[in-house]
Design a protein around this nucleic acid. Structure first.
Length: 472
RNA sequence: GGUCCCAUCGUCUAGAGGCCUAGGACGCCGGCCUCUCACGCCGGUAACACGGGUUCGAAUCCCGUUGGGACUACCA
């Protein structure tokens, strides 16, 4: 039988890291088993669902390359199907109309809680046959009051629930909208879902859902409940732990492969392997190797993976990814032929694309201020001749590449009998304004001849000025 | 409160009764490399929550305790 999995987010906010991992596991399981992955939007909560949130979900999935085979299906467009199924349960006596008002239920619940009783629905309307005029009603599912429901979970094993613990849950609201538990069940069997892989927080809902499957005469799917992702204080990951939306990671300059790799290894493992390509993940993924315990989200490790994938990516592609970050800083870099070279000088020293952009700023900004300390230490009179020699050497250089630049430096080193360190730092300050940059030869090559000569000249002039000032 | 889930270094994890003096990775610390900053390389730090069983033998199986988490909506 063909494996069919689904990701079923509700569009009530942004696409959460935890949701993405659930999506990833479903996607991987489907791909590994050559099955289908379905995307379904659970928007029956009309008050909280927004179109904006739907787009965020779709964008996020696309960015991460989690391609779906069917959908997106919207529950809000399947209302007739749910209604039909509710009618079916109503007519065969497995569901009933409840006329208790929300306020009344709330009051009774609080009373029960005070007395230390279970705050569950008391079944007042269970066997009611009259239809009070002018009073709105909900539809409740008639849960069995005895017996045990077993969940066969691929991650947790068998989990047993006493049916007496289960409430007569509402399957249709007074406004006629079906509720979550009804919709998932109806959707999952009408869409032929074979494996439901979802968050641990749904485990307690599962027995009710199994009961619903039975009521409809359908076999429940295989369940696999994955543990939650926690923040560093071991509480469920939420906004107060910092960035938890995929969009935030994209905007900070994380690569999708880094996020995917990180999330895959959070709760799942394959021996000692840490780095996985998408292809390897699809090849090795299995539910047997998903752990039972919850995992703390660790930004440090995500960063490590991001640096890994930045280093690994080829310069042309990386240049394309970096471009928007450069432009966000207000520099025109589109079509700048130096970009791949610039990226090459930076890719081994930054954690994110955002950081890469800010590290690259000196390549674009001509009127930078010299760092005070660096200027005092390296742009002094005794280094003026040095900078002139380098400038002269470079001005005749053709082609203007790494090896050529190195040749110019070697020559000056020989002439002045100075070590590279003594020459590189003044040049570095002249070119970048500070003492920190990529290797000097590669920096010069990426900077380009025109800008390099211009900046050396600027520094030489600057030294002349300060010498003149000293003389006075 | 009730129901359910979970428990190996700070964190992610390997571990399917003897291969465990518990392995890998991130982080952290130290060193090497070096034109600055990084990268890289080498080394180090650090864990089976606790208590009972079962067994010749337990990180691994069972029970309990403790701790954490989820659910307990006319949210999903």
């Amino acid at each position: 039988m063909e494996v069919r999995t689904r990701f079923a987010p509700s569009p009530t906010g942004y696409l959460h890291i935890g949701g993405v991992r659930t999506a990833l596991f479903n996607w991987l399981f489907a791909r590994h088993n050559k099955g289908k992955f379905i995307l379904r939007i659970e928007d029956t909560d009309t008050g909280r669902s927004t179109e904006e949130a739907v787009n965020v979900i779709l964008d996020g999935m696309k960015w991460l390359d989690l391609e779906w085979d069917e959908g997106p299906f919207f529950q809000s467009k399947r209302l007739d199907i749910y209604k039909e199924h509710v009618e079916k349960l109503l007519s065969n006596g497995m569901a009933y109309r409840c006329y208790c008002s929300a306020e009344e239920l709330k009051r009774r619940k609080e009373e029960a809680f005070k007395k230390g009783l279970k705050p569950k629905y008391d079944g007042k309307c269970r066997d009611r046959h009259d239809k009070p005029e002018g009073v709105s009603c909900v539809v409740r599912f008639k849960s069995p009051t005895s017996g045990t429901t077993v969940i066969r979970d691929m991650i947790r094993g068998n989990v047993y629930f006493d049916n007496s613990e289960l409430d007569d849950l509402i399957i249709m609201r007074s406004d006629g909208m079906p509720t979550y538990n009804l919709c998932v069940v109806v959707d999952d069997f009408t869409m032929g879902i074979t494996h439901v892989i979802r968050g641990d927080d749904h485990l307690n809902n599962t027995p009710r859902q199994v009961l619903l499957y039975n009521a409809f005469g359908n076999k429940p799917p295989q369940f696999a409940h994955v543990s939650m992702i926690l923040g560093d204080d071991k509480a469920r990951l939420s906004k107060r732990h910092g960035a938890t939306s995929v969009t935030a990671y994209r905007d900070m300059g994380y690569l999708p492969e880094a996020l995917i790799n990180y999330l895959a290894r959070l709760g799942w493992s394959h021996g000692d392997q840490e780095i996985f390509s998408m292809k390897e993940l699809v090849e090795h993924f299995s539910l047997e190797n998903v752990g039972k315990s919850s995992a703390v989200f660790n930004p440090e490790k995500l960063i490590w993976l991001n640096t890994h994938y930045i280093k690994e990516k080829d310069n042309e592609e990386l240049a394309g990814l970096l471009l928007p970050f450069i432009e966000k800083m207000g520099y025109k870099a589109e079509g700048d032929k130096r970009l791949p070279l610039i990226v090459g000088t930076l890719k081994e020293r930054v954690k994110t694309l955002e950081e890469m952009a800010s590290s690259a700023e000196f390549y674009f900004k001509d009127d930078f201020e010299y760092d005070g300390k660096a200027e005092r230490k390296f742009l002094k009179a005794e280094n003026r001749e040095l900078l002139i020699s380098i400038k002269n050497g470079l001005s005749f250089l053709e082609p203007f590449d790494h090896n050529g630049v190195e040749g110019v430096f070697v020559k000056v080193m020989e002439e002045t009998e100075k070590k590279l360190g003594k020459i590189a730092q003044p040049v570095r300050v002249a070119l970048t304004g500070g003492t920190v940059s990529p290797g000097i030869f590669e920096t010069i090559e990426a900077m380009g001849k025109e800008k390099t000569l211009m900046r050396l000249e600027r520094a030489i002039e600057k030294i002349k000025e300060s010498v003149a000032v000293q003389d006075v």
